[in-house]
Simulated scan of single mutants.
Amino acid sequence: MLKIKNYVKVKSIAEAYELNQKKTACVLGGMVWLKMGNRNISTAIDLSGLGLDTIQEFDDEFVIGCMTSLRTLETDERLQEYTHGAIKESLRHIVGVQFRNCATVGGSIYGRYGFSDVLTMFLAMDTWVELYDAGRIPLSEFVNIKKNNDILVNIIIKKESLFTCYLSQRNTKTDFPVLTCAVSLIGEEARTVIGARPGRAMIVEDTKGILKNFKKMTRKQREQAIRDFAEFAGQMVPVSGNMRGSAEYRALLARVLTKRAWETVGGMKNEY
């Protein structure tokens, strides 16, 4: 059972940050996961009055407020055009529309949940987080930082030349994913992200340079590089088993989804 002693709808991020320094305080977000746990909260901090539920587009970036709902992300035409539908694909399986109307992007990113489709997708882009105290840091760095009492204010997606694809495997349509995969070409950088391992999403470093100069490869070279990298990813990504799938199954999925996603980005097939 969730027990809240005091509820405060803050008037500024500074007020929220000050209140959140107590270990027993908590930022509410959309409360879709929080309410399912057993916890005593001394001060529940509500950010809903700060106007942080919008998506702003600028010449060089998108700025997404932490209180923006997953449904708003899913239906934003500008983001769908920029990601070629990948963001929508990463969100459409998450429980249902009612749930996505409540769940926030800030809660999904700050929570760094192992099962998070959202974290997998955002790691595949040039994404930064804006924290009240620490300022802007890359999401790829933030994902590995130990949780603290800072406040996540915005999520920033830098606008670069982007080709991306998102895939996931689920045992049933609205269940947690067995494995998630997002791949992208960010400018000249080839990036692969695997999540729900069942640990939190991680970037698979191409230490062998298999996908280097992917854009300049011939179709035959791409096909071979994709096969080689899919095998490499299956070997390099740490996986384990749980009630949704064994470690062996996840290792196989890592190979298969990586291959399919890169074939989509490489123009060999269309997953959407």
Rank of each mutant, 00 (worst) to 15 (best):
Met1Cys: 02
Lys3Pro: 00
Lys3Gly: 00
Asn6Pro: 03
Asn6Trp: 05
Val8His: 12
Val8Asn: 10
Val8Thr: 09
Lys9Asn: 14
Val10Ala: 11
Val10Asn: 11
Val10Gln: 12
Lys11Leu: 03
Lys11Cys: 00
Glu18Arg: 13
Ala25Asp: 04
Val32Thr: 15
Val32Lys: 11
Trp33Thr: 12
Lys35Val: 15
Gly37Glu: 15
Arg39Ala: 07
Asn40Thr: 09
Asn40Gly: 01
Ser48Pro: 00
Gly49Glu: 09
Gly51Leu: 03
Gly51Asn: 04
Gly51His: 06
Leu52Ile: 10
Ile55His: 02
Gln56Glu: 13
Glu57Val: 09
Phe58Trp: 02
Asp59Val: 06
Asp59Leu: 03
Asp60Val: 01
Asp60Ser: 04
Asp60Pro: 00
Phe62Tyr: 10
Val63Cys: 08
Gly65Met: 08
Ser69Trp: 01
Leu73Val: 02
Thr75Gln: 09
Asp76Ser: 12
Arg78Tyr: 06
Leu79Asp: 03
Leu79Ser: 05
Thr83Pro: 03
Thr83His: 01
Ala86Asp: 01
Ala86Phe: 02
Lys88Pro: 01
Ser90Asn: 01
Val97Glu: 00
Gln98Ser: 15
Gln98Phe: 01
Arg100Glu: 00
Cys102Pro: 00
Thr104Lys: 06
Val105Arg: 04
Gly107Arg: 11
Arg112Val: 04
Arg112Ser: 04
Tyr113Ser: 11
Ser116Asp: 09
Leu119Ile: 06
Ala124Gly: 11
Asp126Ala: 12
Thr127Leu: 10
Trp128Gly: 00
Glu130Cys: 07
Tyr132Pro: 03
Asp133Gly: 02
Ala134Ile: 08
Ile137Glu: 12
Ile137Thr: 14
Pro138Cys: 03
Leu139Trp: 01
Asn144Asp: 15
Lys146Gln: 12
Asp150Lys: 14
Ile151Lys: 13
Val153His: 05
Ile156Gln: 02
Lys159Asn: 00
Ser161Glu: 08
Leu162Tyr: 02
Leu162Thr: 08
Thr164Lys: 05
Tyr166Asp: 05
Leu167Asn: 07
Leu167Lys: 13
Leu167Gly: 07
Asn171Arg: 15
Asp175Gly: 06
Phe176Thr: 04
Pro177Glu: 10
Thr180Met: 05
Ala182Trp: 08
Gly187Thr: 06
Glu188Met: 01
Ala190Val: 07
Arg191Asp: 09
Gly195Ser: 09
Arg197Gln: 13
Gly199Cys: 05
Ala201Trp: 04
Ile203Asp: 09
Lys212Asn: 11
Phe214Lys: 15
Lys215His: 13
Lys216Pro: 00
Gln221His: 04
Gln224Gly: 01
Gln224Val: 11
Arg227Asn: 08
Arg227Pro: 00
Asp228Gln: 13
Asp228Ser: 10
Ala230Glu: 12
Phe232Val: 03
Phe232Leu: 03
Met236Lys: 14
Val237Leu: 02
Pro238Ala: 10
Pro238His: 13
Val239Asn: 14
Met243Pro: 02
Gly245Lys: 05
Ser246Trp: 07
Ser246Phe: 13
Ala247Thr: 09
Ala247Met: 10
Arg250Ala: 08
Ala251Glu: 11
Ala254Ser: 15
Ala254Arg: 12
Ala254Thr: 15
Ala254Tyr: 14
Ala254Asn: 14
Val256His: 13
Thr258Asn: 10
Lys259Tyr: 12
Arg260Val: 06
Arg260Gly: 09
Ala261Arg: 07
Thr264Arg: 10
Gly266Ser: 08
Gly267Phe: 07
Asn270Tyr: 02
